[in-house]
Structure formats: C-alpha cells, structure tokens
C-alpha cells in the first residue's frame, strides 16, 4: 500500500516548491533591505519596524482577505497582472507566492537585521582602509560574517512557509497541484473525518519541523561565537 496518495504527494511537492520560491525571493529582497534597515536611524524607524513585524501579529485571514480583494480583476493590481500574464492572481500559484512573501517577510528580515546590526563599523573601516569597495566588502566580508543570520533567516522562512495555512485558505481555492498545499490537504482530511490520512500529513510536518529547527539551533550554537 502506498504511503501517500497522488494528491497528497502533489500537496507535499507544492508546499516544498512554494517554500523554496518564497525563501529564494525573500533572500534576494531581504538582504539589501535588512542591511539598509539595520543602519536606518531616521524618524520613521519605528513605523518601518512596525510594518515589518505586522504579519507576525496580524491574523492571516486579514492579509488573505485584503489580498483577495487586491487580486480581483476589478482592482488595478489584478488587472495589471492579468494583462501581463494572461492569468488571474487569486487561486493561482503566483498569488500564493505573493501572499507567502508578504506573510513570511518578518521571518527573513528579523534575523538578518539582527545579524547586520552585530557587524561593527570597525570591520567596515578596516576593510575600507584596505581599499575594498563597498560591493567587494559586502560580498567578501559582510555576507560571510553574517552567514549564520542568513542561514537562520532562510531556514525560518522555509519552515514557516511549509506550515502556511490561513493565507492559503483565503486565496488558494483548494485546487490540487496548483494551490492545495499540505496544510490545506490536511484540513480537508480532518473535516472529512479521515483521521488516518490527517495523521500521516501531520506527522510529516511535525517531524520535518522538529528536525529542521534542531539542525538550525545546533548550527547556530556553533556559529554565533564570532559575535
């Protein structure tokens, strides 16, 4: 007997794909943004901090609801997307990806900002005195020194997206292979009282999260000694 049905494999694969894309995109956006924010001292600092932390405290349904309104073909974003891609954002993988990027933003930015804050100005001064350009410094000094923070950010973002539920429930539309991620498939099993299947998917998420976080914390214990 197969452990998972075809639809369940599709859900697992879709969750992995969503997590991978979200993490990659968030790292590309997050690293420069976090570097800027770690040094930003202006009067909007608290507003910026609040905006970053907002998805942590906001119920996912609020975000999902606004995204659903925003994605509708009657809104300018929905219209623009439709003109560019020929598909609508709601109930599509692209829509889920946008939702995940917004919802997981704090999980990427917070560790990165903390990491960059620990990078002292003195390191930068030494690198500058050695004639390093900023790009050279950033790639060869700052990024390697902040590697633990970057790995933490990537790992947390990935794990958080794997378990994403509320936003997907609001904007996903439960389409197999397109928007039916693990948590949604699991929810459907529970509602159908199919507890055996629900146990299987829950166990996958539980074991994955536990191993993932244990490895992450072990790695961090070894690597935060420089700070």
């Amino acid at each position: 007997m197969a452990i998972f049905t075809q639809a369940e494999w599709a859900a697992i694969f879709l969750s992995l794909k969503l997590s991978l894309y979200t993490t990659a995109i968030l790292l590309v956006i997050g690293v420069p943004l976090a570097w800027y924010l770690a040094r930003y001292q202006g009067r909007f600092q608290s507003v910026a901090q609040a905006m970053i932390a907002l998805p942590l405290v906001l119920p996912p349904t609020v975000l999902g609801f606004y995204l659903l309104v925003l994605f509708s073909p009657q809104s300018s974003l929905g219209q623009l997307w439709f003109t560019l891609s020929g598909e609508q954002l709601a109930f599509s993988f692209s829509g889920l990806l946008i939702g995940s990027i917004i919802y997981s933003l704090p999980f990427t930015l917070q560790p990165l900002i903390n990491g960059f804050k620990q990078y002292h100005q003195s390191y930068q001064d030494v690198a500058t005195s050695l004639g390093f350009t900023f790009i050279h410094q950033f790639l060869n000094v700052i990024l390697p020194m902040c590697k633990p923070a970057i790995i933490t950010a990537a790992a947390l973002t990935f794990a958080h997206t794997m378990g994403e539920f509320g936003v997907v429930l609001m904007i996903g539309g439960n389409i197999p292979t397109e928007t039916q991620v693990i948590s949604i498939a699991l929810y459907e099993h529970v509602e159908l009282l199919d507890y055996q299947s629900a146990h299987k998917l829950s166990l996958i998420l539980l074991v994955f999260s536990m191993i993932w976080l244990t490895v992450l914390y072990r790695f961090n214990r070894q690597n935060y000694s420089w700070a």
């Binding site: 509708s72 609508q88 109930f91």
Partner: peptide
C-alpha cells in the same frame, strides 16, 4: 459567496 462577490 465572498470569492464571487470580490470578483474572482
């Protein structure tokens, strides 16, 4: 109903 009402 909400999906429909929001124009999606």
């Amino acid at each position: 109903y909400h999906y429909f009402d929001n124009g999606n």
